[in-house]
Amino acid sequence: MATLEVDKLRKSFGGVQAVRDVSFAVAPGEMLALIGPNGAGKSTCFNMLNGQLRPDAGWVRLNGQDITGLAPRKVWRMGVGRTFQITATFGSMTVLENVQMALLSHRRRLGQLWTPVARADRAPAEALLARLDMADQAARPCGILAYGDLKRVELAIALANDPKLLLMDEPTAGMAPQERVGLMALTASIARERGIAVLFTEHDMDVVFGHADRILVLDRGALIAEGPPAEVRADPRVREVYLGAGFSGGHPGSRDPVRGSVARPKSVQGGH
């Protein structure tokens, strides 16, 4: 059974249909990318899944349970982890404390007034950080961390409640190309080992074509293509509204319009 099922989701703002009848599903361990031009409705779609927006119509089901329109914190309690386009961590706490907070919240122990945090849920938080190669950064304040490391902290926080579904909004935005590959490869391996379904939006075509198992393309609120990377890349409509003939993002096999040379297909070496 699919982990996430989205059925005929719809949302309008002031008469404009931002998302129209979008349906799809994500299987356990699958990496599904949601792409499309700016204003295509990706964020709106995403925000209806994580609870920030209430859909006008349609259903969102997590392992068969209806989670449509639940508040974000309730969606999280149902087992949905999130990372943000612009990292959101607790800057006045250390990396370890950030992860501890997620664990404490998961175990509903945030109302405690007496036991210091220093003694709560340390071991599991440390284990999680070790899995993300962040053990040596555990004691550093989040406020002074490098951007790439912050993205990893976000991932650790998102994994703290043993999620069934991970929603990642532009997970590699603002990272160096090298780090992008590392983060996505790590995400994919954790997703496979724990059977977590991953849905992500992304503008970097190397990341999309290199790490997604399947791709959804959204344009003006509607799904216009869905399928494995090779199929989507060849789709003429997708090329027209989104990918263009061009060079940017350097997706594989693309022709460079300026010099007419063929760019090196990078995702082949980085990917599957």
């Binding site: 999280w76 943000f84 959101a88 607790f90 907070m101 998961h106 945030l110 703290a160």
Partner: peptide
């Protein structure tokens, strides 16, 4: 204690706090 940390958590990042169930 955890309560004080949760208080700081919502101050540091309301978005993240909500996203971890606070």
């Amino acid at each position: 204690a955890p309560f004080g940390y949760a208080l700081r958590a919502q101050r540091d990042s309301a978005l993240r706090a909500e996203a971890i169930g606070i």
